[in-house]
Amino acid sequence: MRGLTERLYKAGILLQLLAFVLGLAFTQAAFAAEPGSLAAIKAAGKIRIAVFADKPPFGYLDESGKNVGFDLVIARRVVKDLFGREDAVEWVLLEPANRVEYLEANKVDIVFANFTVTKARAEKVDFALPYMKVALGVVSPDRNVIRDIKDLRGKKLIVIKGTTAETYFAEKHPEVELLKFDEISEAFQALTDGRGAGLSNDNTFLFAWANTNKGYTVGVPSLGSLDTIAPAVRKGNKELLAWLNGEIRNLGKEKFIHKAYAEALAPYYGNSVDPEDLVIEGGEFR
């Protein structure tokens, strides 16, 4: 019996070794070209850009499964200006929480995924010039539009727990009475039920909501500190960063971001929104 089990052990060890070697071979097979520099990207003949696949209207897949959205319109143009054609790109679909890691691990060259510039992120990746700005907004019924925070005196404002809107009003305007909800759908239901005079959230989100729900207006389109949205490259990839910044400045000259807005965002936001509240041209943001 011992002889048999011993033989089995040996066979087992051999198989595990084989698996390990096979694993290594797999790894070698999946080796991608040494990425990074502008020259390497050009030599590879394509650039790897990370985008969202389920965040309309910024980055999503249309009915046929094609990558579309505001970020994609700009990213396609960047690819075209780099290679002379739009299809020299590999779209890498990612989740919001992974964006920094994809750059750190060198799995993509540029992240073009509604990436809000924050101090914490800027320590790990290099942000290029911004192309969009976001702020808080307040949406309210047409019959009683809230146009200023003063209009909220003595009224209730609906916010969603854990959002920047909740923090902003608690810190900067403690005089406004807040009605808090856990879920986005609950909060909007409360607004339509008339339980609050208005609802505050990211303005981009409110524009889209007000556009599909008639009878509501984003009376306060921009509030609180403005955050910017920019593409990002791997920390220290100076060459690509410089090229990208130059590209964004050039796009500003022909007001390309406005064109991207008209193509991808206007259908979602409708005519009620002033593009100037969202778009940044040529990276110029005071």
Binding site: D54, Y60, L61, A208
Partner: peptide, 9 residues
Amino acid sequence: KQIIEFNMM
């Protein structure tokens, strides 16, 4: 999820 988000509105 992609299809759901595309049809959300």
